[in-house]
Write a protein that binds this DNA or RNA. Structure first.
Lengths: 251, 251
DNA sequence: CGCCCTTTTGATCGCGATCAAGGTAAGTGG
DNA sequence: CCACTTACCTTGATCGCGATCAAAAGGGCG
């Protein structure tokens, strides 16, 4: 649906440049025309660096009154299943906001782990609410951020209800490709920084089945993989599979 | 998790009475001590009545800049699956807010249909934002409303990943029971105003399988149904099934 | 090289989708 | 009040897919 979490319309794209590099720029739309005050609240973000495998926060942690914005790297959001295995809620990449699910909550009901080395900006609630108070239009953008999150959860739920396994995998590959294109335009290429087990937990399958489905797609020549990155030479066919088209099993 | 969508803590319960009957009372926490001004923005809500089967809004409708709060009745939120069949997003009952998923969006990406006769309050965005501007604490409550919605979607996703069909059905019954108890305290009784097909679409199953699972639970004496309402005499056992416990198939 | 972990692939089996046949309940018109 | 219609619900029988168990094949690193 929406490319990653960008809220800015093309018409507003040039007004952004003044705050380029600031992770909050999606919310700073209608103030600070050209004066020097821009650095006041906008650039005082603290930045966190994580190595792959380190936690940003864990389930049941006290909420630290901060939101996070991913500047670089990939993160997985998970929670513990009743059976012990972890359920992946969502994979998040550059530009994504983390922590919206715990707004004004006392403790986290999800954990966040870095899949790769990460660079993450922190935004205290106080700064955010101050911004929202001063800039009416940023409140709209924040509302879109929240309903965008809800929309992505609905899309995920739709994926989980697809009866066929290969259908879910195809949808997953297409979804990541679409998100990656929001960041690097024109390049039909995305990455799988997470393990097969993570993908399986995300899609409600087993790692064996995920592996099998990827192999089938590769055998058809529709999927090309190079370690962590992949492309979809047979984009059209993969889209048909994702839509529920039947599939010949032979090579 | 949280009982329906109530945000008020027990400590605040008595301060609510001043606005009892007002659907916005969950947000009106910290102002209007005892004066007569209460009726100014609080009671000017318009009310909509729907008969069972009528739409509140449809997919691709233009967003009318309103939120809805269910005062009476049940509603299902759905969207169209790529295969043509509809995917149920959520079942909503008295006290629930409708329309949060389309905040500041141009058109609905979900439809809302009444399952029973309904009474629904409408809240224009303008009123809501005015309220949020004047009452800082209501902004917190609104944040909880939104992250509560996200939390419910995560719970739904967890249900969809449960491997076993009877596990999902058991979780569904328990979830509805918990929600119903938020409204009518102490009564271990809930309703199924939706069709089996709707339940199936919600759980990622077929109506046959849902029917079969309900029959199994009834055969064990753990589930008692009277037309639209049900109780769970074997609550403990159903909880075990929901957690993934194996199940003897005989009567 | 040997070790450990992830991934891939194979073989079997159980569960749930599918197709199909009653059964039940509410609404309609005679 | 009773046939008739039209849903929806229940139950049965079969079959394909994906979970499961298991083994082999990479891949990173001392």
């Amino acid at each position: 649906m929406s490319h990653r979490l960008r809220l800015v319309t093309p018409a507003l794209a040039d007004s952004i440049r003044r705050c380029h590099g600031c992770p909050l720029n999606v919310l700073c739309l209608d103030e600070l025309p050209e004066d020097a005050e821009r650095s006041a609240p906008c650039m005082e973000q603290r930045c966190i660096r994580l190595r792959g495998g380190e936690h940003l926060f864990r389930v049941s942690d006290a909420v630290d009154q901060h939101l996070y914005i991913i500047r670089q790297g990939d993160i997985k959001l998970y929670q513990h299943g009743s059976d012990g295995g972890q359920h992946i809620i969502e994979f998040l990449g550059p530009g994504a906001w983390v922590g919206l699910e715990s707004l004004n909550e006392h403790q986290r009901h999800a954990g966040a782990v870095a899949l790769t080395d990460c660079e993450i900006a922190t935004v205290p609630y106080t700064l955010l609410t101050a911004l929202l108070d001063r800039q009416p239009r940023s409140a709209e953008a924040f509302g879109q951020l929240l309903s965008g999150t809800i929309a992505r959860h609905q899309q995920h739920a739709a994926m989980l209800r697809s009866t066929s396994a290969i259908q879910r995998v195809a949808q997953f590959l297409l979804q990541r490709l679409e998100q990656a294109q929001g960041v690097a335009q024109g390049l039909a290429r995305a990455t799988l920084p997470m393990s097969r087990q993570d993908i399986a937990d995300y899609l409600g399958l087993t790692s064996s089945t995920v592996s099998r489905c990827l192999s089938v797609l590769r055998r058809h020549g529709w999927l090309a993989m190079a370690q962590r990155a992949y492309t979809l030479p047979g984009l059209r066919d993969v889209e048909k599979v994702a839509a529920g088209a039947p599939l010949a099993l032979d090579a």
